[in-house]
Design a protein around this nucleic acid. Sequence first.
DNA 1: TGTACATCAGTGAACGCGCGTTCACTGATGTAC
DNA 2: TGTACATCAGTGAACGCGCGTTCACTGATGTAC
Lengths: 203, 203
Amino acid sequence: MTSKKTNNAHHHGDLRNALVQAGMELLTEGGVSALTLRGCAAKAQVSHAAPKHHFKDLAALREAVALECFVAFNQSLLDAIENGGSAPTEQLHSICRGYLDFAIKQPAYFDAIFSMGSLVSFSTDLGEQSPTAYETLAKVCSHFVTKERDALTVETQVWALIHGYSQLVRMGRFNEHTEAARDAPPSEGPFDQVMALLQHLAD
Amino acid sequence: MTSKKTNNAHHHGDLRNALVQAGMELLTEGGVSALTLRGCAAKAQVSHAAPKHHFKDLAALREAVALECFVAFNQSLLDAIENGGSAPTEQLHSICRGYLDFAIKQPAYFDAIFSMGSLVSFSTDLGEQSPTAYETLAKVCSHFVTKERDALTVETQVWALIHGYSQLVRMGRFNEHTEAARDAPPSEGPFDQVMALLQHLAD
DNA sequence: TGTACATCAGTGAACGCGCGTTCACTGATGTAC
DNA sequence: TGTACATCAGTGAACGCGCGTTCACTGATGTAC
């Protein structure tokens, strides 16, 4: 029971939230194109006109769902750092690992973040105390800034490499092309070998 | 006149090709979601049931359009290499430059290749004499394979970095957030600085 | 060179589907007094 | 504490739209003889 005592036919109590959660499930089940107003309403067991009281239009609902995906992504990066070593190179490895893991474990959320919200959400202030994904990335990268290499460069090098790699994995680049492995999660490929490219940042 | 003399009401002569070309235009104008059977038929000035004689379903038409995009991408990489220096590091720079340029100049094609055809097309034999994009990439990378770094690793390092970077640029990472620059092409950002990460491959 | 005919590649009407949106409505909530 | 009433947040029917698909059709093409 998240809401107080509102569980009636005519007053849901927390429909906005329920619609976003329904959207997350639809996203997982059928990808971005499955995110519809009617679909979310049905999943939340509410008439299909009900969402109009909470979202101006489909784009607004999708934006809310994308933001929720971003919150999860955000947390995934923070967790990865927390569970890894504290040395700069270890943190760098951890955040990249978290990035890739999210792409593998939550492929639909990953898609949503980078196909729906463009990159807006990446720096969107969530209004909480938690930093944005970009701030987290920037902090980890800050240890590798030198006279010849400014912050923007390091951040972009790291981001481009891990994002590109995650995309390749996500797109099935390293998948076995067998019938048997159809439902298996995608292979992560030569992650460590690729990340070795970043070890030069510490030189 | 590409076709012989067939320009009648009932026999288009080269409708399949015309539909794919129409699809390319729709793609440019409205993105992947604008690619519909009815849309292509309308653009090719043909009744909306006509495509059924050339494409089994919408997926088949989209596949054909994605393949055409890939052909253009393919050529873009070859041209970039041709117009650059012949030294291995120059070729590496050139192919990455071509990759990024394609993402900037043909964003819709870029999206189509990597969102519709998954990665299948990347290694798809085009049935011509020209190599696939992956073969081109692999050839350029082959000069940087060492005892500690096998071919797959180098290829993946380069591909991940340039693909990720191109995606960031494509998503507007380096855009000015001004109203004035709304219709301008996206800024390419610190391309050379980021590519500097690859110079270690030559060490 | 001409004719009969099968095949090919179009047309246009119709169908059902899911979608976003509008609308009059109504039950539940909360506030003024 | 009780009552009147404005507001909020739902319902369900209806609408129009674009879509893919099916279908009977027909004009153009090409081949057999």
